[in-house]
Simulated assay, not measured.
Amino acid sequence: MTAARLTDEDAATYAGWFKALADPMRVRLLHLLAGELRPMTVGEITEHLPIGQSTVSHHLKTLAEVRFVLAERHGTSTRYEVNTACLDCFPAAVRAILGRP
């Protein structure tokens, strides 16, 4: 069985996803949000990681750009949560890259 051809657009999207996950702290941050199962502020996230708020914000921006996390404004603060669509999309992307149905 031959797998579907990987389009240039899909390859670029998937490369962006892996680039966003190429930093161990972003992986830890995503793991934290996934484990909490609730939106969190930057301050709450900072309490759980050994980095400052500006660094957390930078990592969240990177993860939000590829839609791994979603940001929701609440007045003057923003809460971040895992994009649950990633639970389906990311494994499918890995299968596509590896040529698996």
Score class of each variant (00 low, 15 high):
residue 61 K to N: 10
residue 50 P to A: 04
residue 92 A to L: 05
residue 35 G to Y: 07
residue 75 G to Q: 13
residue 92 A to D: 03
residue 57 S to Q: 14
residue 85 A to F: 05
residue 40 M to V: 08
residue 88 D to E: 08
residue 73 R to V: 14
residue 95 R to Y: 11
residue 26 R to S: 03
residue 90 F to N: 03
residue 96 A to N: 10
residue 45 I to C: 05
residue 78 T to A: 14
residue 78 T to L: 08
residue 36 E to H: 11
residue 84 T to V: 15
residue 31 H to Y: 00
residue 75 G to V: 07
residue 26 R to W: 05
residue 90 F to Y: 13
residue 66 V to Y: 04
residue 49 L to Q: 00
residue 83 N to C: 06
residue 5 R to P: 10
residue 33 L to D: 01
residue 81 E to D: 09
residue 47 E to R: 13
residue 38 R to Y: 06
residue 38 R to P: 07
residue 33 L to P: 09
residue 11 A to H: 10
residue 47 E to Y: 08
residue 70 L to E: 13
residue 56 V to Q: 01
residue 19 K to I: 01
residue 33 L to I: 09
residue 38 R to L: 12
residue 88 D to I: 05
residue 5 R to A: 15
residue 11 A to C: 03
residue 76 T to E: 09
residue 72 E to H: 04
residue 44 E to Y: 03
residue 65 E to R: 15
residue 15 A to G: 01
residue 87 L to I: 05
residue 27 V to H: 01
residue 90 F to H: 02
residue 10 D to W: 06
residue 32 L to H: 10
residue 18 F to N: 10
residue 93 A to V: 02
residue 100 R to G: 03
residue 39 P to E: 05
residue 63 L to D: 12
residue 29 L to S: 03
residue 6 L to R: 08
residue 75 G to F: 10
residue 42 V to R: 03
residue 36 E to A: 15
residue 77 S to G: 00
residue 64 A to S: 15
residue 87 L to T: 12
residue 36 E to G: 09
residue 99 G to I: 04
residue 15 A to R: 13
residue 95 R to H: 12
residue 10 D to S: 13
residue 13 T to P: 01
residue 77 S to R: 14
residue 40 M to T: 08
residue 39 P to D: 05
residue 1 M to E: 14
residue 68 F to A: 06
residue 17 W to M: 09
residue 32 L to G: 01
residue 21 L to T: 04
residue 15 A to N: 02
residue 36 E to S: 12
residue 2 T to L: 15
residue 91 P to V: 03
residue 78 T to K: 12
residue 68 F to H: 01
residue 31 H to T: 08
residue 26 R to Q: 01
residue 25 M to S: 07
residue 56 V to L: 07
residue 16 G to C: 11
residue 4 A to H: 11
residue 11 A to D: 04
